[in-house]
Design a protein around this nucleic acid. Structure first.
Lengths: 252, 252
DNA sequence: CAGTGGTCTAGACCACTGG
DNA sequence: CAGTGGTCTAGACCACTGC
């Protein structure tokens, strides 16, 4: 098959290899919900037939999607749409670990929803979410505790329209990560995130909710989470106690 | 070519694909210094001939090495051993960015070596470096400033033997990242690192060196850097001011 | 122009899963 | 056992670099 090329804006050929075009097509199907989180996608042979390319080309497209954690390959079984609802890691995007290093020994987090309400987006929130200032957003505040010690205070903002019907009760009753609930209830899949980390001194309401003294140093973690197509869908501001836990990062 | 397999400990076949074996061989050559940072390695065809496998198999081995940032491919030119001495990013492992987001506008960091001396490793340092407590290590303390504002205080410890001859003068006179100096002067290439991040209150000597008030929250970044084979070669404890900068991380 | 990495194909066989 | 992803090969051609 010859690759189909579009003319670039400046008359540039805008070459993109065939496997990249296939990748975009598969991405499109993921985005359109043709295959849902946890589903098997068609076999490489089937996709090759569907797109009229060789299996090797489909394989390379899927390889990249797997590298970006959008799908998961399992030999002998198939390729699955990635999901946040896997028990293997409780919170895929949470980098806070107990100092002992053994997160499993610590057990699951206790979650407490402090509030969940609808409001008009302040300018900074709107900017982060790609909305206009004053657009409706949902604001959730919650506390996560590990072994009964309140450790994380999170404020998060979501665009109101995709999350219509989200309530404190719904959040409270759901077993599993919040991002898994977003997938199953609202069809919004968080794919990627960026975090900005700072140290700052505790003040209200963190002092009360995390039970720390005013001025105590806390880790401030501001996360923007994105769906497909780099669309921002959540702004989350977390305050982490780091007296018994630490934020872990790998560099290469 | 049939793949050569070794028997595993429990009589398990211990299958590893051919391209993984090739990857190990290439890694070995990198480790042995057959090709030095910045060098071109032989072409895929040459390596295929050398190892008696097809070009595709070599390609897959190199693909993985490139994904781990151990080598860099450049179309039409060849494959190069990765180095910290590239001007494109000043510090490959430093995740601290100015809040403006534009690190280039800020210009290069000013560096000041506070001290550089040899001493016997305390227990915690020794453990992190895989040494015995009391073994000789080098300790370096320095301050990095951005636009004349002292922003980072770093203490770092290195095993003494691979870094014999490292002095404050040598560090002072070298233009470029410290890891680049390690490569060229001592043949030690830092390949990967792990960081543990916390928030803590400033105390001496950070107050004086970073010109902050006691109790001011600072980001504590403890980094262990590894050479080939996951051998730890540096422990670095950094204190970052985060009033005008932030630590940036990407999740996926 | 020759040499490099990058793409694409087609076919064979291997390892793993589940019925 | 059939079906999946995983490996390996050989050969053709494309895109980029530098002489």
């Amino acid at each position: 098959m010859t690759s189909i090329q579009e003319a670039g804006p400046g008359g540039t050929p805008a070459f993109s290899p065939l496997y990249q075009q296939i990748k975009v097509l598969i991405l499109q199907s993921l985005q359109d919900g043709e295959w849902k989180p946890g589903d098997v996608i068609p076999s490489e042979m089937d996709l090759a037939a569907r797109f009229r390319v060789s299996q090797g080309t489909v394989r390379k497209a899927i390889d990249e999607l797997a590298a970006e954690n959008l799908v998961m390959r399992r030999q002998g079984k198939g390729t699955f749409v990635a999901t946040h609802a896997e028990q293997q890691v409780q919170y895929r995007f949470l980098r806070l670990l107990p100092d002992t290093g053994d997160a499993s020994k610590e057990g699951p987090a206790q979650r407490r929803i402090i509030e969940c309400k609808r409001l008009r987006a302040p300018a900074d929130i709107a900017r982060a979410l790609g909305l206009r200032s004053g657009d409706a957003v949902l604001h959730v505040r919650r506390v996560l505790s590990f072994q009964q010690v309140p450790t994380i205070l999170e404020d998060l903002w979501l665009p109101a329209s995709p999350f219509k019907g989200l309530t404190a009760e719904r959040l409270d009753s759901y077993r599993g990560p919040m991002y898994a609930l977003f997938e199953t209830e609202f069809g919004v899949r968080m794919v990627r995130a960026e975090e900005k980390i700072r140290a700052l001194a505790a003040s209200e309401p963190a002092c009360e909710l995390l039970k720390v003294k005013a001025g105590e140093p806390l880790l401030s973690v501001e996360r923007t989470a994105f769906t497909y197509n780099d669309l921002p869908m959540e702004l989350r501001r977390g305050l982490y106690r780091t007296d018994t836990h630490h934020y872990r990062n790998s560099l290469s």
